[in-house]
């Protein structure tokens, strides 16, 4: 139990988990290194394998490199941050070598993402419907009217009441949960295979969070969408993910099937995370209650 496996064995564990389920690998990250312009490395050789149709969790405190890993996969690292080593391949296609325009074409149609604070990821001056219709026109090539019609359908499918009304609202007129649904609608319009949800439910109310997570689960079930879920919240990870990767200081310290990692954590940091969660989490209160 006291063994703290290095990242190589951790990855092997993850790969085994994938192998057991017998699904082909959709996204494969090998030895990913990310550095800031001043030369300091912030992600030190991360390995990830995401089987098609699975839900993979990335957990760790803020600044541990999980978001930068996602951004590197998307090809949208902030200005001054660069991939300095490793490979990212999607269905066998090496992404890091692709020119920017080609990567832009992959986004939306092959991989997509939603983030924390949905309001800031929508253009404040354009109605949410028009922004959704824009994606439909650009990525699928629908005509103006058809895009509008389909956008309303999608909003409805995302569980938004009064979709026509929502269509003509500006981002500042909608709540966080509604906006996150709109953003999810936008990200899945072009039927990508992989959806990255980077702290997508963090800022939402607990009930809204549950609804959005349920929506993601449904999308995974009904469309075969592969999920990469980034969260610092172990509850979200345990509810959603088949496998989990624990990030710390730019490296993966432990990886494996979620159930195994949460029940029998091997790395001290993972144990610490779980303990913190138990100590401060709602489960502890409930446990105490039931004991009394």
């Amino acid at each position: 139990m006291s063994v703290s496996p290095d990242s190589a064995t951790a990855v092997r564990a993850a790969a085994d988990a994938a192998g057991e389920s017998g699904r082909e690998t959709l996204l494969s990250v090998r030895g990913l290194r990310v550095s800031v312009a001043d030369g300091s490395e912030v992600v030190h050789g991360v390995d990830l394998d995401i089987p098609r149709g699975s839900a993979v969790g990335l957990v760790g405190e803020s600044g541990s490199g999980k978001t930068l890993t996602c951004r590197a996969v998307l090809g949208l690292l902030p200005v001054g941050v660069e991939v300095t080593g490793g490979e990212i391949s999607l269905r066998g296609t090496e992404l890091t070598a692709l020119p920017a325009a080609k990567r832009a074409r992959l986004r939306g149609t092959d991989l997509a993402a939603v983030f924390q604070d949905p309001a800031s990821y929508l253009n404040p001056s354009i109605t949410v419907g028009a922004q959704l219709a824009e994606v439909l026109r650009v990525k699928i090539g629908l005509a103006r009217r058809a895009a509008r019609y389909r956008a309303v359908e999608l909003l409805h499918a995302m569980g938004l009441r009064r979709p026509t009304h929502v269509y003509s609202q500006y981002p500042f007129e909608l709540s966080g949960g509604m906006l996150q649904r709109v953003l999810i609608a936008m990200s899945i319009t072009a039927e990508p295979e992989l959806l990255i949800a980077d702290e997508a439910t963090t800022a939402l109310d607990v009930t809204v969070q549950a609804e959005v997570l349920e929506l993601l689960t449904e999308l995974r079930r009904d469309r075969g969408l592969t999920l990469m879920i980034v969260s610092h919240d172990l509850a979200v990870i345990s509810q959603m993910c088949d496998t989990v990767h624990v990030f710390r200081d730019g490296s993966i310290v432990e990886a494996g099937p979620t159930r195994r990692v949460l029940r029998v954590p091997r790395h001290p940091y993972t144990r610490e995370l779980i303990e913190n969660h138990e100590r401060f989490g709602i489960d502890r209160v409930r446990k105490q209650r039931s004991q009394q």
Partner: peptide
């Protein structure tokens, strides 16, 4: 530098747009 530019990039919109 706003987030919604990243948002538009994530949706795969072309740079000129």
């Amino acid at each position: 530098h706003e987030n919604y530019i990243v948002g538009a990039q994530v949706r795969g919109l072309p740079g000129w747009r």
